[in-house]
Design a protein around this nucleic acid. Structure first.
Lengths: 141, 141
DNA sequence: TCCTAATTTAGAATCAATTTAAGTTGAGAA
DNA sequence: TTCTCAACTTAAATTGATTCTAAATTAGGA
């Protein structure tokens, strides 16, 4: 997402702050993350503004909405095609730019017109591994 | 999931009805779908029972919880490793049993211990294609 | 500068999911 | 058989994320 891409929507201070936050925090934040950070600059800002802005940016295809967490939307300001590496402990999401050739055999098509694919890799991130290692005697999952 | 796998939890009539529903409706239903269907048989059954049962079955690894829809959990009673084919219009989910070899190059590991992967294919299902075709003049997304 | 549609705001409403507390059930012990 | 206790079910309250609403404000073009 590039600021200059935002042409046909009004450039309000709140929106610019939200966009700046997304540009600088590429950890796939939730709406709450965005709200918390941006409302420090704009204490009167409401949640609706965050959601409205994120929705608008999504419409303009400047960000992508992720369904990786149930019960919570997360947003990705990198719209290049890519995959994800997700920590099953802390739910941090990392980007993966390797391309994979995924040919679905015809008999699995189920009558679909296929338009894309996405791979999620699951694992345990370095930080969570280290924490696990430390507490190995009184290990609780 | 097989009934006989359920050993160390009580086999109540409500639970058996929920399991039967999951066995017969492999469309990856939501908790609401399960509740709607099973409460026809047990009109006094509460939502909490559905959630408790689904949670318990998940713990026992007899079903899988999917995060494909934001804001709503969906459940898959097929615990064999497999991928999904998702209609971007109606959100129906189909199973894909083709196996893919997905080698993540070392420099993309980001310090993770990788434990698995999952592929989502996106497309438009036959039903939605047909509906689209019909209304091609007054086409609305 | 003026105008107007777009945007922001606080608060209410909604929806999915979880928690709570009270009542029920059923398998094993006495 | 009756007692007991833990597991289970239930309705209702609560939480958390999101959406809606209606009134006030504002960006950006005329």
């Amino acid at each position: 997402m590039i600021l200059s891409d935002i042409t046909d929507i009004k450039q309000t201070p709140q929106r610019l702050a939200i966009i700046e936050y997304l540009e600088l925090n590429r950890v796939h934040p939730s709406a709450l993350d965005v709200y918390k950070a941006v409302s420090e600059k704009f204490p009167t800002m409401s949640f609706a503004t965050v959601y409205n802005t994120l929705e608008k940016l999504k419409e303009k295809r400047l960000i992508i909405e992720l369904s990786i967490d149930t019960g919570k939307k997360r947003f990705d300001c990198d719209t290049r095609p890519h995959h994800h590496l997700i920590c099953v402990k802390c739910r941090e999401i990392f980007d993966v730019f390797t391309e994979f050739i995924l040919e679905l055999p015809e008999d699995e098509f189920q009558g679909f017109d296929i338009i894309g694919n996405h791979v999620d890799f699951y694992g345990i991130c370095k930080k969570c591994k280290d924490i696990e290692g430390l507490g190995s005697e009184q290990n609780k999952d």
